[in-house]
């Protein structure tokens, strides 16, 4: 649990991921981007995922998960995440497809 302690180690990388998402996907101006890591130690569960979510007004929300930590996400990963999010934006579907590559 102590290894799961969620305290901010600095927002630099998070900000960078958000900038990549805005660069690679046409995120409407009024949308907020949320980047968060979730960990689960239960056997059979994904140990760690980063969720990138787009949150717009009128409860419009799109999210994409990746089995990488925030620190591990590079520009290429961010591009793939953004492409998935872009498809969701265009289809207006709330999808949670996983992107497993690194």
């Amino acid at each position: 649990m102590f290894s799961q302690a969620k305290h901010s180690s600095g927002s630099g990388k998070t900000r960078e991921i958000k900038e990549w998402v805005r660069k690679f996907a046409s995120v409407p101006e009024d949308f907020a981007i949320l980047v968060t890591e979730l960990k689960c130690t239960e056997p059979g569960c994904p140990p760690l995922e980063t969720i990138v979510a787009l949150l717009g007004s009128e409860n419009r929300k799109y999210q994409q998960k990746v089995h990488l930590s925030i620190e591990q996400i590079g520009e290429i990963d961010a591009k793939k995440i953004s492409e998935q999010l872009q498809r969701q934006l265009e289809n207006k579907e709330e999808s949670v497809e996983r992107h497993n590559e690194h």
């Binding site: 009024d30 949308f31 907020a32 968060t36 960990k39 689960c40 569960c45 995922e49 979510a53 999210q63």
Partner: peptide, 21 residues
């Protein structure tokens, strides 16, 4: 008060999407 739910395995976390915006 727009609720946004995230989960990973057994971990579930609900936040307020409108507040984040």
């Amino acid at each position: 008060e727009e609720i946004f739910e995230m989960n990973n395995g057994c971990i579930c976390c609900t936040v307020r999407g409108d507040l984040i915006r």
